[in-house]
Design a binder for these strands. Sequence first.
DNA 1: TTTATTTTTTAACAAATGTGAAATGAATAC
DNA 2: GTATTCATTTCACATTTGTTAAAAAATAAA
Lengths: 202, 202
Amino acid sequence: MTDQEYILRFKNFSAQQLQATEEEWEVMKEYLQLQYFPKNEYFVAEGKVCRKLGFIAEGVMRYCMFRDDGNDVTCFFIRENDFVGDPDSFFLQKPSDKNAQALTDCRLIIFTYENMHKFLQQLPRAKEINAAIDHHVAMKLLHQRTSLLNLDAGVRYKEFLREYPDILQRIPLSYIASFLGIAQQSLSRLRKQMPSISKKEN
Amino acid sequence: MTDQEYILRFKNFSAQQLQATEEEWEVMKEYLQLQYFPKNEYFVAEGKVCRKLGFIAEGVMRYCMFRDDGNDVTCFFIRENDFVGDPDSFFLQKPSDKNAQALTDCRLIIFTYENMHKFLQQLPRAKEINAAIDHHVAMKLLHQRTSLLNLDAGVRYKEFLREYPDILQRIPLSYIASFLGIAQQSLSRLRKQMPSISKKEN
DNA sequence: TTTATTTTTTAACAAATGTGAAATGAATAC
DNA sequence: GTATTCATTTCACATTTGTTAAAAAATAAA
């Protein structure tokens, strides 16, 4: 894909999700940068200030936490049309307490801190949009929390497949097991019991 | 406690959490009502429009979901100094998809829809505050999701006790078990293994 | 108090998931 | 192509949690 096509994805997102007009887009696009972001690198890292917000034009990333025992836990996945970054850290320019890692090579549309500020001055409505997104995320997490606690692992795996049908093919199962809260071997056992939906080929 | 004392609790909350000035409080208090809300009643009910937002001056409530098998699941608890209500349903006056039930007799400070609108016109900053609260909730839920999935039930129970030290004494253990995602009998088994922190007396 | 009702605990067994080690398979580097 | 690394599966067994039923304890009602 060409750079222009990646940027177009963000234009579409802006028009549909943010209700940005053509005029607003003309303003916005001056502040955007396209960035290649390689697999396994951390876009947000615990203890460091998050200096950019990114829109994923292509790729899969995850938020994760590191545990005392050395293992890490995948909190959730993000991919095309999601934002990556830590708003708390970004807007207040304070150290982040989160980690966001690329699980595939990614193409990101980037807002730097400086550009975001200039942009916000031109389009104050962006604040409202941020709030709406936050609210949406909160409700989604609440639903996840409840379903995860009260459904067994097999059902949770099926829900994962329904919600992230495009991700299974693109990342190792170990991340998915961690996201579901089970050991990789347990996921493997579950997959054997539902052969119809467990294929990893396209 | 007297009505005045309950209202004072909200005044304190407003001053500390919402940074409301004395002048703002004088405006706000004209729009408030005190309401007694009895145990087991639903303040928010699935399918019904949420016509009031409440601040809990005294009592414990829970958000819950009803499952197909007839059981219900406790999503999370709220108590003194928390708000109760469904903002989506309230502000858009559309049917709610949530349930909020009183687990003890409660004293609530109430905003009706009409009063909230009048109030918002006098203090537009309230919107920002709402957004901040939402964001805070989202981050809390995220943390919960992760810890719940990757810690065993005993550790989750200890975290519950740390986070809600005041609730154990006031509601049946069945709700807590549901919140932790385990059967009541399993919780009982856990409590036996940690006698020091499991007492229900004051 | 005495009786109901609700809440909590206990027990035995079943089912689900974790753990460690090893084998197989797939992708990548040389 | 072969070697090397990484990803996935398999297995045996340990541990945790669920389930069912009943008893005990606590609370509310009469």
